[in-house]
Design a protein around this nucleic acid. Structure first.
Length: 211
DNA sequence: ATGTCGATTTGCT
DNA sequence: GCAAATCGACATA
């Protein structure tokens, strides 16, 4: 029995512990989620994607955050739970968007997953997305990756170390110089907060969303 | 390459 | 009623 030296993205890894999510610095967590893996589905229906693009939503003072000013609704209730669960909501009435809830209970911080690189279960992803969709657009964009991974609003509130949606560390290490920090997408209504560089992505990765 | 538009749930006025 | 953490189709250039 030999052990591998290089990390292999097609093997299973360790689910991130709740301590990863429950830290106060959501910006740091957004950066550290790059290169982690989202795994969905059971035996025979497994799909895997490596996170390549994220955005931080920074609590009650962030005008772009659903919890700005302490807003608390049925929809965004999951943001107020302790870190380590999913906040999945319906955007424009159509697209399920996946967020990672962070920080402590009562502190509504979250990281939006904007794009993943397809790693496993490609055939199932193509079936879910439609045969005419090119691989380049399979999981590029927050509404696209959830469709490819089979994530919907039914996953709102699920534990991210659990079987439905699991985020794993598979040993991929990202150097800070490989990460771009830019303004977030689609939040122009948020005034000065729209310009803050809280969108992070892997430089040169083909699955980063375009637009 | 850039622009407009429709699909359609949720929350705020 | 209207805008929203989007996407893809279609139009025009």
């Amino acid at each position: 029995m030999t052990s591998r030296i290089q990390p292999c993205p097609t093997e299973s890894g360790r689910a991130l512990p709740s301590s990863f999510y429950r830290r106060a610095d959501v910006i740091r967590i957004a950066r550290e989620l790059l290169g982690k893996f989202i795994v969905t589905g059971g035996i025979g229906r497994k799909t895997v994607g490596m996170i390549v693009e994220t955005e931080a939503y920074v609590g009650v003072t962030d005008r772009a955050c659903h919890a700005f000013g302490g807003r608390r609704t049925i929809r965004n209730e999951a943001m107020y739970a302790a870190g380590g669960i999913a906040y999945v909501y319906l955007c424009y009435g159509l697209h399920a968007l996946l967020n990672v809830v962070t920080h402590r209970r009562g502190a509504p911080y979250a990281v939006l997953i904007r794009a993943v690189e397809p790693i496993g279960g490609l055939a199932l992803m193509r079936r879910r997305r439609g045969a005419q969709v090119p691989d380049r657009r399979l999981t590029a964009g927050p509404g696209s990756l959830t469709q490819a991974l089979g994530i919907g609003v039914r996953h709102n509130g699920v534990n991210l170390a659990g079987p439905e949606v699991r985020i794993e560390d598979r040993g991929v290490r990202i150097s800070p110089s490989g990460i771009a920090a830019r303004p977030r997408i689609g939040v122009n209504y948020a005034g000065a907060d729209a310009r803050r560089p809280w969108r992070f992505y892997l430089l040169g990765n083909p699955w980063v969303s375009q637009r």
